[in-house]
Design a protein around this nucleic acid. Structure first.
Lengths: 206, 206, 206, 206
DNA sequence: TCCTAACCGAGACGGTACGTCGCGTCTTAGG
DNA sequence: CCTAAGACGCGACGTACCGTCTCGGTTAGGA
C-alpha cells in the first residue's frame, strides 16, 4: 500500500518497521489533512498527534505530499471497479465516475486534492508520481470505456479520446477545486450525458 | 483595479502612498510567484527584492494570496472585451475564452493559479474574494454570451447555463491545473465547439 | 520649564507652539511612564494617548529620556527648599532629604528613575544632562549643608565631603533602585543620623 | 551555576544540549552587553555573533535579562570567599567587598548592572530572581560578617544589621550606577571604615 | 546467548519566515 | 511656522516548522 514497501530483495535484518506507528501516522495525517488542508498540516503536528517522532515519518515519507497521497489512496475505494462492462458507454462511464464522486463527497477531500495539485505544479518529480497515481489512473478507466464503445460501434473510431476525457473530468475537477457548486450525483450524470451526446451524436442518450 | 484603490471620497490626509513602492512590490511579487509559485514565495523575499519593508506590504495586502491576485489582474488583459457581440454563440465564446488562454500561455501562471485555488479552499474569506474576482467574473462573460444566444434563438431558452459554463471552463482549468496537456488554441476551439454542439444540437457549428 | 524654551532671541514668526499639545504630551508621558516604566513607554504610545502626532514630540524632545526628565521635574517640588539653614547639620540634611523622599514615595517613580540611570550609562551626552539636573543638583544642597556645618564648627574642616554625600545618597538610591526595602521616613532619618555621627564623631546626634 | 543546570534526576533522553553553543552564546552575549549595554543588545544580534539560532537561545533563556545574569555570574569570581573569618569586622567586610569591586572595575559592567536594575523594577518575576542571585547573595555575606562581629562582642547585639548593609552597599552601588566617581579601592576602604565606625562606636578602626 | 543491524522516542540544532511593533524620518494638507 | 495624519525603510520581537542530528533503548535475525 505504502510507496515505501519496495526492497524486499535483501534479507531483512534488525528491528522490523513498526506497523502501529505506520498506521498512527496515516490516521493522524488523515485527520489533520481533512481539518487543515495540506498547507495547514505540518510534519511536526502529525508526529505530535500520532505520538511518533518526526524522524520516523521522514524515514518513510520524503515529503508531506507523498504522505498525503498515501492517506488518500488508503481512504478511497480505488482498487475495485477497474473495468466494468455494462454494455453502453453511458453505463461504463457511470461505473467509473459515480463511485469516485461518492468518495469525494464523503469527506472534505477537496482541500487536500487542491494542495496536491498545487504541489505537483511546483515539483516535477512529485508531478509524475501524482499524475500517474491519481489522474492518469482514473483517465485510463475512462479511456478503456471509450475504447469499448468504439469497438462496439457506439462512437466513431476517430473520436478524439483525450478531448472527451477532458470534457468528462474537467467539469468535475472544476467544481471540486473551485467549489462554486456541489459535485453531486445529478451533476455527474449530466456531465456524463453531455459527453456521451458529444461523442455519439446520433445516440439517443441523455 | 487594485483592491486598495478605494475611498477617494474622504480628504486624503497624511503622506500619500508611494506609487513606486506599490509597483516595485507588484513587480517583485510577480517575478517570485512565476519562479517559485505561491507556496515558495514569502513576503520576506518580496520585500527584499522590491527594496521595501515588510510592513509596507502588510499595510496594503493582508496576505500573499491577495497580493498574488492583484499581480495576476495587473498582468492580464482582463479589463477589455467585457461584452462582445459577434453575432454567433461560438464567436462570442471565442471572444471570451481565447484572449484569456493566450494570457495563461504567455507565462507559467498555472503554478500561481493552483496556489490560489488551494488557498481558497482553506480560507472561506479569501475564497469569496478569489471566486468573485477570478472565477465568477469570467463565468459572467460566458453567461452573457449564452444569454445573447438564447435571445437570438440560437439555443433553447431552458438551457442549463451553469452546466454549460462548467463544461466550458472545466476542461480548460483541468489542463491548466493538472498540466497533462497544453491549453493551446486548437484545444480551446475544440472545447468551445463541443459546448456549442451540446447546447445547440441543431446548429451546424463545429 | 521645558528644556526647549531657549532661543527667544530671534523674532518668533509663524504659528506659535501649541501649549495644549505640550501639556497633553507631558501628561500622557507621565501616565505611561508611571504605568510601564521608561523601557515600556514608546513615543508612539505617548502620541496616541496625547492625541498629537509623533513629529510634534520629536520636534521638541530629542529622545524619550529627555522627555521623561521634563516629566519628573514637572511633577516634583524641586524648586523650593534650595537652602534652609536650621542651625544644625542634622536639621539641614533633613530639610534636603525628607521632601525628596516624600516625592519619591508619592508615586512609583523608581521605575522611571532606574530607566534614566540605565540610559545615562549608555549615552554620555544624556549622562551629563541627567547628572547635572538630577544628581548633582541634589548633591549640591547636601554639600551646602555640610559647608554650613563646617563654618559653624560642627564638623572638622577637613571632612571628606564627597564621601559623606555618597554615604547619604547611596543608601537611599540603593533602596529606591533595588527595591528590597521601602524608602520610608524612619529609614531616611536613620541614614541622616548615621552620616552625622560619622562626620561629627563627638556630637550627640542619633 | 547556570539557571538551566537543574533536573539531572530524570534519565536524559534525546539529543543532549550542545555545550559549545551554550558557551558561544554566553561569550557573544558578554561581548555585546559590554559594548552596547542591556538595552542595546538584542537576542537577534547575540544569535548572529554566536552563530546559533535564535530558537536555541530562547530554549534556554526566557529573556535577555536572565541571559545577562548568567553572563555576569559566569564572568565574576562569585563562588569563592563565601565566608572568610579574618578576626575583625573590618577585615571580614574587606574580604567580601574588595574582590567584588575589583570584578566591577575589571570591565565596564555598570551599564549591564544598571540595565538589570531597571528591568527588575519593571518585572516582578525577574526582580525576585535578580535580587536573590545578585543583591541578596552579596548582602548575605555582609550579614554573616556582622553576625560574627556581634558574636565576638565587636558590635552591639542590637545593631540594625539591615541599615548597616544599606550603608555599606548603598554608596558603592550609587557610584557604580550614577558614575559620578570611580568605585576604586580607597573609596571602598573608606566606606567600610565608615560603616565599622558607625556600628562599633568604641572601636579604634578607621 | 550474545552480537549486531535496523528501528523507535525524544528532543536539540541551525535555519527561514511569520505577522507585529516601534523607531525616527518623510511628505502631504491645513491652521 | 506649527500641527495632525500617516506612509516609509528599518530592525527586532518571540514563535512555528523545517529537515537533520545525536542520544538511550528496543527488537529482531544470524553467529
Amino acid at each position: 500500500m505504502s510507496q515505501t514497501g519496495a526492497a524486499v530483495t535483501t534479507v531483512r535484518r534488525g528491528r522490523p518497521r513498526s506497523e502501529s506507528s505506520r498506521q498512527a501516522i496515516l490516521r493522524a495525517a488523515g485527520e489533520l489533512l481533512l481539518e487543515q488542508g495540506l498547507g495547514g498540516t505540518s510534519i511536526e503536528a502529525v508526529s505530535r498527534l500520532a505520538g511518533t517522532s518526526k524522524a520516523t515519518i521522514y524515514r518513510w515519507w520524503p515529503s508531506k505530499e507523498l504522505l498525503a497521497v498515501d492517506v488518500l489512496l488508503a481512504e478511497w475505494h480505488d482498487e475495485a471497479t477497474s473495468a466494468e462492462d455494462t454494455g453502453t458507454l453511458a453505463g461504463d462511464l457511470r461505473a467509473v465516475i459515480l463511485p469516485w464522486t461518492r468518495d469525494l463527497r464523503s469527506r472534505p477531500y477537496a482541500r487536500i486534492v487542491s494542495g496536491l495539485v498545487a504541489a505537483a505544479l511546483g515539483d516535477e518529480d512529485f508531478a509524475h508520481d501524482y499524475r500517474a497515481r491519481f489522474v492518469e489512473r482514473r483517465r485510463e478507466r475512462g479511456r478503456a470505456a471509450l475504447a469499448r464503445a468504439a469497438a462496439r460501434g457506439e462512437i466513431p473510431a476517430d473520436t478524439d479520446v483525450e478531448l472527451a476525457l477532458d470534457m468528462l473530468y474537467g467539469p468535475i475537477y472544476h467544481r471540486l477545486l473551485h467549489g462554486h457548486e456541489e459535485v453531486d450525483e445529478p451533476f455527474a450524470e449530466q456531465v456524463i450525458a453531455a459527453v456521451v451526446r458529444a461523442v455519439a451524436p446520433g445516440s439517443s442518450a441523455g
